[in-house]
Amino acid sequence: MMAYMNPGPHYSVNALALSGPSVDLMHQAVPYPSAPRKQRRERTTFTRSQLEELEALFAKTQYPDVYAREEVALKINLPESRVQVWFKNRRAKCRQQRQQQKQQQQPPGGQAKARPAKRKAGTSPRPSTDVCPDPLGISDSYSPPLPGPSGSPTTAVATVSIWSPASESPLPEAQRAGLVASGPSLTSAPYAMTYAPASAFCSSPSAYGSPSSYFSGLDPYLSPMVPQLGGPALSPLSGPSVGPSLAQSPTSLSGQSYGAYSPVDSLEFKDPTGTWKFTYNPMDPLDYKDQSAWKFQIL
């Protein structure tokens, strides 16, 4: 009977010793046993002879290597770790002494450095960015050149030099007046198309007034536009458009034309069986010896 009264063996659950049927240790109110408190290391007290050895090595170098620390530790009968900690504390003490010396050398008012006064946003004049500046400075420094007289040679050079070769001289006033084509001369031969040399188009003023001019072949195509416009036809070669000034309004060009419109200028042929003959000019830059190549039959 006494065997049943004795408590059973101890069981360990999660490293906790349980005594038989008792489960009081598993209750929430019972805390787990805490780790033992780490003991504080005792402070090391250095003797005068030990301090002399350490100070002598510190005077040589503030960062001794492990071999120098072990050698000193053997002399003063201390572990190497204590020597390492002593050098660490000695360097910190040396830095603190240097900072105190710097503070003593500075004057009393030198510690508080005078800061520059901050400028207020409204006091300083700042350039306004509302208006974009002129990058080319046209509004201040540029002045347009004065327009020359209508009959000045410089204007003629600016007008005619675009179309004339570089080897030719500017046309005088008398020749510029001949550039304007007359109405009857352009409409006299509506079906004849003559190819003149390129030099005649640039230099010869008579080429624009003769039936064999460069633009005589364009007349049949330009004249039928007159009834559609409801007024006189516009002429690209009329009046002052080739003269001194090219800047004319469309209203000033509306009254200039080749001449009176005639039914002869239409595109319809009077004789459907007729042929169109292209007159060959020996001055043509295209060297075609066979003139029969310039004739064709309209079917």
Rank of each mutant, 00 (worst) to 15 (best):
I298G: 00
P108G: 06
Y4T: 01
P33W: 12
K60W: 09
R43H: 14
S188P: 02
K277E: 01
L78M: 11
L286N: 03
S204C: 14
R82S: 14
G274W: 09
G122T: 03
T273Y: 11
P240A: 05
M2Y: 09
A156E: 03
G109R: 12
M26F: 11
Y258P: 00
L74D: 14
W276F: 02
P145N: 02
L237G: 03
C132T: 09
A181H: 03
S139Q: 04
Y4C: 03
L267P: 01
S203Y: 11
T47W: 11
V66W: 11
Q84T: 10
Y288M: 08
L286W: 04
R176V: 05
V226Q: 00
S212P: 11
T47M: 12
A3C: 08
L218Q: 01
P135T: 06
D65T: 08
G230T: 04
Y214G: 03
N6Q: 09
E168P: 13
D65I: 12
Q228N: 06
K270A: 03
A196E: 01
P240T: 07
Y208A: 01
S141D: 02
P149M: 07
E80V: 06
Q96I: 07
P7W: 14
D290A: 15
A29K: 06
V226W: 13
R119H: 02
S254T: 05
L78D: 12
L222K: 03
S182W: 12
S292T: 04
N89G: 14
A3R: 03
R40M: 13
S169R: 05
M5W: 09
E52T: 02
S241V: 09
A121W: 07
A166N: 01
Q84K: 05
H10Y: 10
R41G: 14
Q106N: 08
I138L: 08
A181K: 10
A158T: 03
L74G: 07
W294S: 00
L136E: 09
S212H: 11
R69G: 12
Q96E: 10
R43P: 14
D290T: 15
A68G: 10
D24E: 10
N6I: 12
D219V: 15
L229S: 04
A35W: 06
Y221S: 02
S210G: 06
S245M: 07
L286K: 08
S152E: 02
S19R: 11
A177Q: 10
S210I: 15
Y32T: 02
D219M: 12
D24G: 11
R90M: 13
P263F: 12
Q103E: 04
V160L: 09
N281C: 14
P108W: 04
A192P: 01
S254H: 02
Q50A: 10
V131T: 06
V131N: 09
L229G: 04
L16H: 02
G255V: 11
S252V: 12
W86D: 14
L179D: 01
S292E: 00
C94G: 06
K88H: 14
G243Q: 06
K270Q: 11
P144E: 00
G148E: 05
N77T: 10
P79H: 07
P220N: 09
A293H: 07
G183Q: 03
L136C: 04
K60F: 08
F46N: 13
S266T: 07
D134S: 09
I162R: 01
P282S: 02
P197I: 14
A15W: 15
